[in-house]
Amino acid sequence: MPTIDRIDGYADELTAIRRDLHAHPEIGFEEVRTSGIVADKLKGWGIEVHRGLGGTGVIGVIKGKGSSGKRIGLRADMDALPMEENTNLKWSSKIPGRFHGCGHDGHTTMLLGTARYLAETRNFDGTVHLIFQPAEEGLGGARAMIKDGLFEKFPCDELYGLHNAPDLNHGEIAILPGPAMASADFFDLRITGYGAHGAMPERSKDAVIIATTLAQAIQTIVSRNVEPLQAAVVSITQIHAGSAYNVIPGDAHLCGTIRTFSKEVRTLVSERIRTICAGIAAAYQCAIDVDIRDTFNVLVNQVEQSKVVEEVARTVVDPAKVITRTQPKMGSEDFADMLETIPGAYFWVGHDGSVPVHNPGFVLDDKILPIGASMFARIIETRMPVV
Rank of each mutant, 00 (worst) to 15 (best):
H358M: 09
G126W: 01
N297W: 01
A211G: 11
A287E: 14
T267V: 10
Q285R: 14
F362W: 07
G103W: 08
H240F: 03
C255L: 07
A215H: 03
F151D: 04
V309T: 12
G36D: 08
L214H: 11
R51K: 13
C102H: 08
E202F: 09
C102F: 09
K263L: 15
L74V: 04
G138W: 03
E84R: 00
G141E: 01
V233H: 12
R325H: 06
C102M: 10
A377C: 04
P82I: 02
T34S: 01
T127Q: 10
H129Y: 09
D289T: 07
G66Y: 11
G106F: 00
T237M: 04
P385Y: 02
Q302L: 12
R190I: 05
S262P: 10
D366L: 08
H170M: 13
Y245H: 11
I175D: 11
T3C: 14
L159I: 12
W348H: 15
K205T: 03
R259W: 07
T3Q: 15
A241Y: 01
R71Q: 03
L118I: 03
G149R: 14
P2K: 05
N123R: 12
Q133G: 12
G106A: 11
A287T: 14
V308H: 13
S270R: 03
L299T: 02
P177G: 12
D185N: 11
G353K: 07
I379S: 14
D352C: 02
T295G: 15
Y194D: 08
G198V: 01
D334L: 11
P155E: 01
K321P: 00
G73D: 04
I288D: 14
A165H: 11
M110V: 01
N297G: 06
A313F: 08
F347G: 02
E172F: 00
G353C: 00
G149T: 12
P25R: 11
R18H: 00
G171N: 10
A320Y: 02
C255F: 06
V349C: 13
T192S: 15
H197F: 06
T114I: 07
N359R: 05
R314E: 15
G73V: 05
V303E: 15
P2D: 08
E152K: 11
W45V: 00
G73A: 06
S270N: 01
N359C: 11
L42G: 12
R383H: 00
D167L: 14
V265G: 08
T213L: 12
L118K: 09
D8F: 01
E152V: 02
D125H: 00
R190G: 09
V49D: 13
P179S: 04
L42K: 10
T326Y: 05
D334V: 07
E202L: 06
E340C: 14
H240S: 11
D105Y: 02
I131F: 13
L299Q: 00
R378M: 09
Q302M: 08
I191M: 11
F376G: 08
T15E: 05
M110Y: 07
K70F: 10
C102N: 09
F335N: 14
R75L: 01
H240I: 04
L111Y: 12
V222N: 13
I248Q: 13
I218E: 07
V386H: 14
F362L: 08
E84M: 04
I59E: 05
F187C: 06
G250T: 06
D40Y: 02
C277Y: 10
H100W: 07
G103C: 10
S235H: 08
T275Y: 04
S92K: 13
